[in-house]
Amino acid sequence: MTIIFDGIAYGMLLFILACGLALTLGLMNFINLAHGAFAMAGGYVLVVLTQRAGVPFLACLPLAFLVTALIGALLERTLYQHLYGRSHLDQVLFSVGIIFMAITAVQYVMGSSQQIVRLPDWLQGRVEIAGIGMGVYRLFTIAICAVVAIALQVGLVRTRFGSQLRAAVDDPTVARGLGINVSLVFAVTFAVGSGLAGLGGALGAELLGLDPVFPLRYMIYFLVVVAVGGTTTITGPLLAALILGIADVLGKYYVPQLGAFIIYTLMVLILLWRPNGLFSRAVAR
């Protein structure tokens, strides 16, 4: 049971990391492989703030979100927005370029060693609930991720901005004609997506490890979550992330010699079975 619990925590974390990608990829149809770079940025913001500036851990999480969202907004305005209508090949090349630059830039500034995150005392240790041992930090992670997931779902379905976004995605021309500032909507969405990745990176720095090759190491995981979960809903990626997290943790625990093999095989099989994702509408966009 503890393992499954760990898997859930891991899966929730993956969801937070990947849901920004689900937004850009699913709603804006932009293959952004560099999504992990934003997550890495969030992680490094946390590390720098807690260790160098002595900011308390809790205050760092929103800061990580904000800083990454800012970076995301900046990049969207300067670079990404030119690529929305381009072919997927262009988008792939572009974002791979961004990954390479991010990796080397971080290596240059922070060194290539793994960063250690110091958690505050009250987040360390374990508790027993109903006979299941749980790490306090993992519980904390799950709680935050659940809140974010609910907020996202409500934000997309219930708010005015959410409907504007969906309108802008369905038909940018008509949306523009209706007076919706489409490029602003896209910019905000991109910024929020990046910010969420940053939040996930900050939260996950302790569980996933943080070093300059983070964007490449977890790129495949993010893509799996989005590709398997389908890109039309929030619940799809959430379920996919949970399945992935639990499967990965179980696999690593019971058959460690197979390692990541299980995940990749699982992914290929699922995509073979449902090429547009497990939980997508009949016709993917």
Binding site: I31, H88, I220, V226, G259, T265, V268, L271
Partner: peptide, 19 residues
């Protein structure tokens, strides 16, 4: 599948072989 699916599958095959 779509471009994305193909990207994932080609990437996945390479990763499986690497593993």
């Amino acid at each position: 599948g779509s471009d994305l699916t193909r990207l994932m599958i080609t990437l996945g095959v390479a990763l499986i072989l690497l593993e």
